[in-house]
């Protein structure tokens, strides 16, 4: 085809870095078992909870998480050891970075599904339920007393709730996350300029800000459930509110855990100004989670 024949024996290895292919690893299969336990456990658990029957689902789910954590420790320990003993070339560093970037793209698409649902619910479903477009009869016959409004504080079926204000707590939380992105950036410049003090302090501040954010988020949820009657079951507004902020919150939690481990590694003296993929990946993740929040703040709280 377009390739010409060439001699495989010609030894070019001098000019190219070696690509380290780990020989064997038990961790993937352990991870697979963990996912199995989690999925099968959770699948049974939700039924047991909704049917209020006893069962093994919960235990299996918990066991799955234990195995998963065990796997992550083992796997990352291997990776860190390999990294510290200099097995990773610059080319491999690129592989990791690209892998992480595409992972973040996939995460973006996950959130897109929920933002898409929010958009559809607000712009299309609400309009149709109140007689818009080709749905005049929908309104007239099925939901004659429905009033379209957003936030949807009264659903067509009649569930009432209150809306979450955009000012106050959510605004503070927005500020916290934005600042945490900035402090993380300073930690990164600290690392790049080999200012270890700045690195440590800024990383710690980022972590604390993350934890504060999560604390306030929990507080907000309690407020929503107790005082506003805003729950998972209170219609489309509550659904999108909780699923978007909830999945975001889970990502913040995950990001914070990763940052925590990065922080420990910093304390142990890992990472050099040139090579610090783990730090970089954690930082990208954190910034991504931050951007998601900004979109979320605009679309869920403000507009």
């Amino acid at each position: 085809m377009l390739l010409r024949r060439h001699n495989l024996g010609n030894n070019m290895s001098k000019t190219y870095e070696k690509y380290y292919v780990p020989a064997q690893s038990p961790w993937p299969i352990v991870g697979a078992v963990a996912l199995f336990l989690i999925a099968f456990g959770a699948g049974n658990y939700v039924n047991e909870v909704t049917r209020q029957q006893p069962g093994f689902g919960g235990y299996m789910l918990a066991a799955g998480f234990v195995v998963l954590i065990f796997m992550l420790f083992g796997w990352f320990k291997n990776v860190i050891d390999e990294s510290m003993s200099g097995l990773y070339s610059a080319q491999m560093d690129r592989s990791f970075r690209q892998g992480m970037s595409w992972f973040i793209v996939s995460e973006v698409m996950f959130f897109m599904a929920f933002f898409g649902a929010l958009f559809y619910g607000r712009v299309i479903a609400l309009d149709w339920l109140s007689g818009g477009s080709n749905n005049a009869m929908t309104f007239e016959i099925l939901w004659p007393s429905f009033e379209a409004m957003w936030p949807l504080v009264k659903t067509p079926g009649g569930i009432e709730t209150q809306a979450m204000p955009a000012t106050g707590l959510p605004l503070i939380n927005t500020a916290i996350l934005v600042i945490s992105s900035v402090t993380l950036h300073f930690a990164h410049t600290g690392l790049e300029q080999n200012k270890r003090g700045q690195l440590k302090i800024m990383l710690l501040v980022t972590l604390l800000l993350g934890a504060t954010f999560l604390g306030l988020q929990v507080y907000e949820y309690i407020h929503a459930y107790r005082d506003l009657g805003l729950t998972l079951a209170s219609g489309f507004y509550g659904n999108t509110f909780f699923l978007l902020t909830g999945f975001h919150g889970m990502h913040v939690t995950l990001g914070a855990i990763i940052l925590l481990f990065v922080f420990f590694r910093v304390l142990k003296g890992h990472f050099t100004p040139e090579k610090h993929f783990a730090f970089q990946a954690a930082a990208w993740y954190w910034h991504f989670v931050d951007v998601v929040w900004l979109c979320l703040y605009v679309f869920v709280y403000v507009i």
Partner: peptide, 10 residues
């Protein structure tokens, strides 16, 4: 939740 249920606005 009622993403796919008109009664809840879905």
């Amino acid at each position: 939740t009622s993403f796919f249920d008109a009664a809840g606005g879905g």
